[in-house]
């Protein structure tokens, strides 16, 4: 069995985000990088499946990104993936979901993957489109945001959450692409020997053009920090003064109690 896991390296969300020079995305300076948490869930599920199948399965981890993305690939190897592929793309961070999906599909087409796992979304861009677009381009079935997974005799059963806390169960045939969300499993801790092995593993490096990078369909603009609301005001005084002040604020600064409104 042939399994592909698509992973992304994202900044540590605790970091300090500022707009880049072009103002269309964030500046990378000073940020620490790690594997997207949703993707760690995907890696874990793929490795569990491989382990449950004994020796007959291989898991390949694929990441698109600049040189530093190899660290995310090595982490996937340390968690139990067998092979690592790096599409080295210094501009990956600013590419739209269509472009990323075009490269994933370009790579996966014709390689005979029975299952493709990926995170439901990335923690930085959060579009939740890449998995779905890749599946469409590959012409395979897909389910997004799975919370349970079972493989039996060539058929896959998954669960996903619906609105209002309901869940549904779906059965699908391979090949298929599944996007995973937290709750599906708890990603394992890599062991120290596996970390060392992963550091020595040879990775396949490809260029974006060699896997069919396409032009974007969406552009990002005006990346800016969250604008804070005005600060609170503490009023002091007796009840009458306080009531008068509240009325004044409602009249002058809001539409709740404007002139001509009900008194």
């Amino acid at each position: 069995m042939n399994i592909l896991v698509c992973i992304k390296q994202v900044p540590d969300m605790e970091g300090h985000f500022t707009p880049n020079a072009a103002g269309n995305w964030f500046d990378e300076t000073g940020l620490a990088w790690r594997m997207n948490e949703y993707d760690a869930v995907a890696v874990e599920e793929a490795v569990r499946l491989k382990e449950s199948l004994g020796g007959g399965a291989r898991v390949m981890a694929l990441s698109i990104g600049p040189a530093r993305a190899v660290e995310a690939i090595r982490k996937a190897l340390a968690m139990g993936c067998d092979d690592g592929v790096h599409i080295e793309d210094p501009e990956a961070l600013e590419r739209d979901p269509w472009q990323i999906a075009s490269m994933i599909a370009g790579f996966a087409a014709g390689r005979g993957f029975d299952l493709i796992f990926t995170g439901m979304q990335s923690e930085d861009r959060g579009s939740a489109q890449v998995g779905l677009l890749a599946a469409e381009r590959l012409g395979v079935a897909s389910v997004t945001g799975i919370t349970a997974f079972e493989w039996r005799d060539g058929s896959t059963t998954v669960e996903r959450e619906l609105e209002g806390g309901r869940r549904c169960r779906l059965r699908l045939k391979s090949p298929a692409l599944l996007t995973c969300q937290p709750g599906l499993n708890t990603p394992r801790y890599p062991t120290l020997p596996n970390i060392m092995k992963s550091k020595r593993a040879a990775l396949t490096v490809l260029s974006p053009d060699s896997v069919g990078l396409e032009s974007p369909k969406v552009s990002s603009e005006n990346f800016r920090p969250h604008e804070r609301n005005a600060e609170g005001v503490i009023l002091e005084g007796d009840a009458e003064t306080l009531a008068a002040r509240v009325c004044e604020i409602l009249e002058t600064r809001t539409a709740v109690h404007g002139k001509g409104g009900a008194r």
Partner: peptide, 17 residues
């Protein structure tokens, strides 16, 4: 038993530990 160890090299792993 090193094959059972739990290790972390990145911020997420460190935080989990």
């Amino acid at each position: 038993p090193v094959e059972k160890s739990w290790a972390a090299l990145d911020s997420v792993g460190l935080q989990k530990l």
